[in-house]
Amino acid sequence: MVTNITNFGRSGLSDWLVQRVSAIILALYTLFIVGYLLFHPGLDYAAWSGLFAQTWMRIFSLLAFVSLSAHAWVGLWTVTTDYLKPTGIRIATQTVIILAIFVFLVWGIQVLWGA
């Protein structure tokens, strides 16, 4: 068995499952947003912010943000281990990626629940 400490779940199986479940959530979220936009042709700011004022939409959106973060991490971690062979560069890149994901996630939560 190959061991890895930078891998999130330390298990290929959990990564694999996370990747698939998060993909389904993201697909549903995308479908919902696209559908909403199509069915509301004259969409204005009030309606849009009204949508995001509802608790269920906030939960749904947060779920999508978390899924996106997990999905991005698993995917990019894989890409870095495939293509970045020098350890220093790989760890540095992985650090940048995880920081960026963290920043975007916190920022997203602030946008969603703040104000």
Binding site: M1, L13, T81
Partner: peptide, 8 residues
């Protein structure tokens, strides 16, 4: 079950 052996 690790991230490489099968899951790559």
């Amino acid at each position: 079950e690790d991230p490489f052996s099968v899951f790559r």
